[in-house]
């Protein structure tokens, strides 16, 4: 019992492209001005030739009709741009995270996460834009619940250890035909036949969910942006959905299929994780603890800083044209 290893996840690393800050400053100067209210933005990640488990933001994050490139997945986030460094420093980060967490619970409970699985991935960006010095202070959070704590039953395996070439090939063709929003999280059966979450789970009859599935040949799949031996952070929210909607899984061992693609889009890098869910899970929203604030490059829980003077300060730009 005491030897059981806690299953670990790799957190997203935020990557904010230059053009994001340019667009943010345009929007702040021309449209939002002193408005501090929440703004919905989009971030993208990929499981194709993934490096560093990145969540990326760029100027298209602000597009109203957001469409991501073919090999990418997108997720919605909340941007809160504050007007002063003081309000940025003193902002109640815990409360904001809690609010996002409660929203996550709500979309799991009302079934919209099953219809649109990529909604399970959410993030927060808190920013303060010092437009005089071209400094952008920012903190990211990737909302996740601390519970349930899950354990690794046996070491991870490669997809080829469990499935035939034929199964993988068929799986690959149906996976690549999936709608991007559905491909984020889904379920597969014995020969890797895909079942969408909305067809597998019913929020109104939770005790019946997965009742006639043989758990030995049921694979809980997700598109994994991690290239590390660990699964990416986003699996945490899938696990939360499963324990919420499928009481039958409590205390059981389940198989996770982490879908990873190499630069040729082949799925042979995919991994299987074998995990055990706890027996007793406190799912009372009042007791739930939320986590996910990103550490800076020094590993500290401090905001990051982007200095854009090289591309925004007219004097510096002029130097490069001289």
């Amino acid at each position: 019992m005491s030897e059981k290893k806690v299953f670990q996840y790799v957190q997203f690393k935020s990557l904010v492209h230059h053009d994001f800050w340019h667009k943010l400053s345009d929007i702040k100067l021309d449209i939002e001005k002193l408005n501090e209210s929440d703004k919905t933005i989009f971030g993208t990640f990929t499981n194709l030739n993934a490096k560093n488990c990145l969540l990326e933001l760029d100027c298209t994050s602000f597009n109203s009709n957001f469409k991501t490139a073919k090999n990418n997945f997108y997720c919605k986030g909340t941007l809160k741009n504050l007007n002063t460094i003081e309000s940025f420093k003193n902002f109640n980060r815990n409360e904001l995270l809690k609010k996002e967490g409660e929203n996550l619970l709500r979309i799991i409970e009302n079934g919209s996460a099953c219809k649109n699985p990529s909604e399970l991935i959410s993030f927060i960006v808190l920013t303060y834009a010092d437009l005089k010095k071209y400094n952008f202070h920012y903190s990211f959070a990737f909302t996740a619940s601390i519970e349930p704590l899950i354990y690794e039953v046996s070491p991870s395996q490669n997809i080829t250890d469990e499935f035939s070439e034929n199964d993988i090939e068929n799986f690959s063709s149906s996976y690549h035909l999936l709608d991007q929003q559905q491909a984020a999280f889904f379920i597969a059966t014995k020969h890797l036949d895909i079942i969408l979450l909305q067809n597998a789970l019913d929020v109104n009859q939770r005790d019946m969910n997965l009742k006639d599935h043989n758990l030995d040949s049921t694979y809980f799949c997700f598109s994994d942006p991690s290239e590390f031996p660990y699964a990416a952070w986003i699996l945490r929210n899938f696990i939360l959905l499963l324990v919420k909607l499928c009481p039958i899984l409590h205390g059981k061992s389940i198989k996770i299929l982490s879908v990873r693609r190499d630069e040729k889009s082949s799925l042979l890098l995919s991994k299987l994780f074998f995990i055990q869910l706890p027996n007793k899970i406190d799912l009372d929203p009042i007791n739930m603890k939320w986590t996910g604030w990103e550490r800076n490059d020094q590993g500290k829980l401090l905001p990051k800083l982007a200095n854009m003077s090289n591309s925004m300060d007219p004097i510096k730009i002029a130097e490069h044209f001289s």
Binding site: V6, V10, N92, N94, N135, S139, I146, Y230, L302, L305
Partner: peptide, 28 residues
Amino acid sequence: EDEDDDDQEALDMEEFDVDNVDPSVAII
């Protein structure tokens, strides 16, 4: 990095976060 070290130091987010007690985080 961190040209504005003064700004950074003043802000201690550790108190806001429960990561310190979260064993599920893989350190890369």
